[in-house]
């Protein structure tokens, strides 16, 4: 075993990359859950985003168009969930599961001709002086634009929920849809918009995996990141900055275990690979004592007649 092979600067830089898909998906789901909807289809929307983004950027040779397509694909798939839960008044848990099962199947079907293809590379930020600073450069100033977008999005979501009137309405709908309805807000419309935002974020997160982090297409490549994102929202007590913190924590664990695998530590690879999931469970157990942050209407079906 050779632990000195692990470079701390590279570790932090790759931690940020590993955390970004998780951050994007979780911040989207945070908005969905703050509006009172539990969408368990994050994994399905991510994998659809991953293949849609991959396919479009291979066909157009533009990673940017691919990312946009991934957001669109995630949002379209989330509309299915919105239709089921908001119009057909179906159970949210079952509908979310349906979305994930359907998304995994559809992505495998769409991705058949893209296995082994190399996507066009995304340009990295390269600032003349800043990127060359010894330690800070690789950590802060030489990533891809999506990574910075994820952090900016976290700030924007924080501002939206805390400071804007629209955010207040969204929170009102999530806390008590009956009261919000009585005040004249359109509960269904707010929730559909929130669900679509969540879908677009999950799609972008998926495309980040297939276009930037890995970058290639393999079936089922999101490997539970969508589910970890759901756990992350609970971990963060439905607060945006804590989502960022949690994403970096999980990203760190994942990168560390990959580095330990590469360094040839005495623990078998399989046990290292299961560590992110075990730690997710551990974190869920610790955080589940305090449910005060959960939106009061989370998971409940709204119909104006009731």
């Amino acid at each position: 075993m050779d632990l000195s092979a692990i470079n701390p600067v590279l570790l932090i830089a790759s931690l940020m990359v590993a955390a970004t898909p998780l951050l994007l998906a979780a911040i989207g789901e945070l908005i969905v859950e703050r509006s009172g909807v539990l969408n368990l289809g994050v994994e399905g929307m991510m994998i659809i985003g991953a293949i849609a983004g991959f396919a479009i950027s291979v066909e157009t040779t533009s990673p940017m168009l691919g990312l946009l397509a991934a957001m669109g694909a995630g949002a379209v798939l989330s509309l299915l969930f919105a239709f089921l839960t908001q119009f057909a008044l179906a159970n949210q848990v079952a509908s979310g599961l349906a979305l994930t099962l359907f998304g995994l199947g559809l992505s495998a079907l769409m991705g058949q001709s893209y296995v082994g293809v190399k996507p066009p590379a995304m340009a990295k930020l390269d600032l003349p002086i800043l990127s060359d600073i010894p330690v800070l450069g690789p950590i802060f100033f030489s990533h891809d634009p999506v990574l910075y977008f994820g952090i900016a999005l976290t700030a924007a979501v924080w501002w939206f929920l805390k400071k804007s009137r629209a955010g207040l309405i969204l929170r009102a709908v999530g806390e008590s849809h009956d009261a919000a309805h009585a005040l004249g807000y359109n509960v269904i419309r707010v929730r559909i918009l929130a669900i679509m935002f969540g879908g677009a974020c999950a799609g972008l997160g998926g495309a980040y995996i297939s276009l930037i982090r890995v970058p290639q297409w393999t079936e089922g490549m999101t490997a539970g990141i969508g589910w970890i994102a759901l756990a992350l929202v609970v971990f963060a007590s439905w607060k945006p900055w804590r989502v960022l913190l949690g994403a970096y924590l999980f990203g760190g664990i994942n990168v560390l275990q990959l580095n330990l695998q590469a360094a040839g530590i005495a623990i078998p690879v399989e046990y290292l690979a299961m560590s992110p999931y075990l730690i997710t469970i551990l974190v869920l157990v610790i955080m589940s004592a305090d449910k005060s942050g959960a939106p009061a209407s989370l998971g409940r079906t709204f119909h104006a007649s009731q």
Partner: peptide
């Protein structure tokens, strides 16, 4: 994978029709 999509669709329609 087409069969997987097929099975997923089935659950969708079932949930929608439950209305």
């Amino acid at each position: 994978a087409a069969i997987q999509v097929f099975q997923g669709m089935l659950l969708f329609f079932l949930l929608a029709l439950d209305l």
